[in-house]
Amino acid sequence: MSGNRQKMKKFLNMVKSHPYIMIGGSLILVMVLAALAAPILTSFDPLEVSGKDRLLAPSSAHVMGTDHFGRDVMSRLLYGARVSIEVGLSVVVLSTLMGGIIGLIAGYYKKFDNVVMRILDGFMAFPGIIIAIMLAAIWGAGKLNIILALSFAYFPPMARVVRSCVISVKEWECVESAKAAGAKDGHIISKYILLNSLSPIIVQATFSFAVAILDEAALSFLGVGIEPPYPSWGGMITEGRAFMAIAPWEMVFPGLAIVITVLGLNLLGDGLRDLLDPRLKA
C-alpha cells in the first residue's frame, strides 16, 4: 500500500509541475460537471417555447437570456454540452479502436504496411471535416450518424501514430528476445508493443476529442449535425445568426463554450505530451 501511495504522490507531483495539465484539466472538469449538473443548475426545459419571453436580455431570471423562441439559453447551453461531450468521447473511442487496430497491423506486419498506409494516405489527402460533411450528407443528420462520420474521418491520424510507435517499439531488444523465445505475435503485441505505445495514443486521443467537439459544432452549424430543436452548440450559433445585432447573447455564449472546451482539451493534450514524451524531458 505504501508503495502505491508513493507512486501516486510522485505522479501527482509530476502533474502539478505541468501547468497546462492543471489548467486544461480544470477547464474540462468544469464543463463536464456543468453538463452533468444541468438539471440542478437550471430549472428550464431546453425545448420549452415561450412566445412572451422571446429575445430577453440576460437577467436574474434568465442568466444568459432567451433565444428567438423564448427558450432559456443557459438551459440549452448546458444540455448541449452533454451532446458535445458524448459525441466527442464516442468519436475518440471509435477512432482510437479503428486506428489502433489498423496501425498495429500496418506497423507489425510489414507485408500489409504499404497497402494499408497508401489507402490511409488517400483518406488524409482530404481534410477530415470535408469527409465528415460528405458522410453526414449521405447518411443524414442525427447524433449516431455524426459520431460515425467523424470517426471515419479522423481514424487515419490515429492509425499513423500507432503505426509509428509499433515500428519503433518492435525493434527493441525485449521484443526481439520474445520472438527468439518463440512467443506468439498476440502475446508480443499485447505485452510489449501496445503497452509501450499508450502514451502517444493518449495524447492523440486528447487532440481528437477537441477536434471532434469543434467539428460537431461545425456540422450542426451547417445543418447536417444534431437535428433541431435538440440543443447543440453549433446549432445554437446557426439559429442566432439572424438575431446577432439585437440579441448577441444567443451566439456569444455557445461560442464561448466551444472556445473554452477546445482550449482546455488542447492545453491538456500539450501538457500530457510534455509529461509522457521522454524526448521532451530535460
Rank of each mutant, 00 (worst) to 15 (best):
D185L: 06
K110F: 00
V162R: 00
D53N: 11
S199L: 13
L280T: 11
L194I: 10
T66Y: 08
L198C: 14
Y108V: 01
F155Q: 04
K111I: 14
R273G: 04
P229V: 13
V211K: 07
M251R: 05
G234F: 07
D270N: 10
L41Y: 00
M1E: 06
N13S: 15
K7I: 08
V63D: 00
A35N: 02
I138S: 07
V162E: 00
S90L: 15
I28A: 09
A136K: 06
I147G: 00
A38L: 13
K179W: 04
L89T: 12
D113A: 14
K10W: 11
I213F: 02
A257L: 07
I213R: 14
D185N: 13
V203P: 09
A282K: 08
V63S: 05
G122T: 12
L214G: 02
A247L: 12
K170V: 03
S75P: 00
I129L: 12
S151D: 10
A136Q: 05
L219Q: 02
D67P: 13
L135D: 09
I147T: 11
K7R: 13
A257T: 09
S75K: 03
L150M: 09
V175S: 00
V116C: 15
S232R: 07
K7S: 15
I201S: 13
R76F: 06
G128C: 12
S168T: 09
E250P: 01
P46R: 07
L120M: 15
R71M: 01
A61P: 02
K191I: 12
A141Q: 15
P228D: 05
I246R: 06
A38W: 02
T238W: 08
A132K: 03
M64I: 12
L256D: 03
M74G: 04
D185T: 15
M117F: 09
L33G: 01
W139E: 10
A159E: 06
R118D: 10
V83G: 01
L267H: 09
S17R: 10
C165P: 00
A205N: 01
S75G: 07
M251N: 12
V175N: 06
M8L: 14
I130V: 15
V73H: 00
S164Y: 05
P156L: 05
A61W: 02
G24Y: 03
L55I: 12
A282H: 14
V63F: 13
D185Q: 14
P39A: 08
L120E: 01
L272H: 00
I101R: 03
T238V: 06
V169A: 03
F112T: 13
H68I: 11
I258L: 10
V30W: 01
L36G: 08
E48K: 08
I226Q: 11
Y230W: 09
T96C: 05
E48T: 05
L120Y: 08
F209T: 04
I167N: 04
S151N: 12
F152T: 07
S26Q: 12
M251L: 14
P248C: 12
S17P: 02
P19Y: 06
I102G: 04
K10V: 02
G223N: 11
I226N: 02
F112Q: 11
K52Q: 14
M74S: 09
P248D: 04
V73N: 05
L268M: 15
I201G: 00
G186L: 15
